[in-house]
């Protein structure tokens, strides 16, 4: 195969020009340019929030954001990484929280300084409607806030832009925690399954597994029935005796 020449594009990292191969993510482009990550990089999979990046394009007044590990470098991007932004995090004793909006108001009264500028939602690389979430919290709708803020990966970019100096991502995380632990209906089947474990319903199954030799376990593993990629919600293995619902019957 004939080697095609890789096209090089110029990008500006913290103001300095570099030529990097086209098609790289911002993260790889920075590594290509010689930067070595100590901070500002974690999962490389778009989920840890370590690689928040701010950039501008020539001739465009807007500020853009990206996750460096997820976004391809474009020609003439002016970028800098903002892996951390200081944000007021107020510790709280979860057991003492009452599951009411006032829990959040007491810990983060600054959220009432929000002027609805929307700079937070505009910068969010995960498209969290941050301004709306803060509005839901102001009006006491923790459930709606928790759902709308679900995609937040705590990169902190919203907080870097906040006119009200509010640490939105800590506030939203508190809302999610309050919702998850104190407001969301408890899953009944979980309690039933835990009870079954306590009653020893699964002991025989575990004992059987533990009495098997490594060879036998390997064989079982290799021959296991795998759920097809196209399986629907109602898919069940042919041998259903290991399913929890079978055990609980």
């Amino acid at each position: 195969m004939e080697a095609t020449e890789t096209k090089m594009i110029p990008i500006y990292i913290m103001g300095k020009r570099y030529e990097v191969p086209e098609g790289l993510t911002i993260m790889k482009a920075m590594e290509y340019a010689g930067y070595q990550y100590i901070r500002g990089c974690g999962c490389r999979g778009g989920i840890c929030g370590a690689c928040g990046t701010i950039y501008r394009k020539p001739g465009d007044y807007k500020i853009y954001s990206a996750l460096a590990c997820q976004t391809a470098a474009e020609p003439d991007m002016y970028l800098t990484q903002l892996p951390f932004f200081p944000a007021n995090h107020v510790p709280s004793n979860y057991a003492e929280l009452e599951g009411v909006p006032e829990d959040i108001y007491k810990l983060y009264p600054e959220l009432f300084r929000c002027v609805a500028c929307n700079a937070c939602s505009k910068i969010c690389p995960m498209d969290v409607p941050v301004m709306d979430v803060i509005a839901y919290i102001k009006r006491g709708d923790i459930e709606k806030a928790a759902f709308e803020a679900f995609d937040c990966i705590q990169c902190g970019l919203c907080t870097s832009r906040c006119f009200a100096e509010a640490p939105q991502f800590h506030i939203m995380q508190l809302a999610r925690r309050i919702y998850g632990g104190k407001l969301a209906p408890k899953a009944k089947h979980n309690a039933e399954a835990a009870q079954a474990v306590r009653e020893g319903k699964f002991d025989a199954m575990l004992n059987q597994l533990m009495s098997m030799s490594t060879e036998e376990i390997k064989k079982e593993y290799i021959e296991r029935e795998i759920e097809p990629e196209t399986a629907g919600d109602d898919w069940k293995p042919k041998d259903a005796k290991w399913l929890i619902e079978e055990f609980l019957r």
Binding site: F112, C114, V115, A116, D132, A135, K138, R139
Partner: peptide, 14 residues
Amino acid sequence: DVELEELPRWNCCG
């Protein structure tokens, strides 16, 4: 017979 249709995304008025 007046239906008050709540704005879908409203903010604190200030």
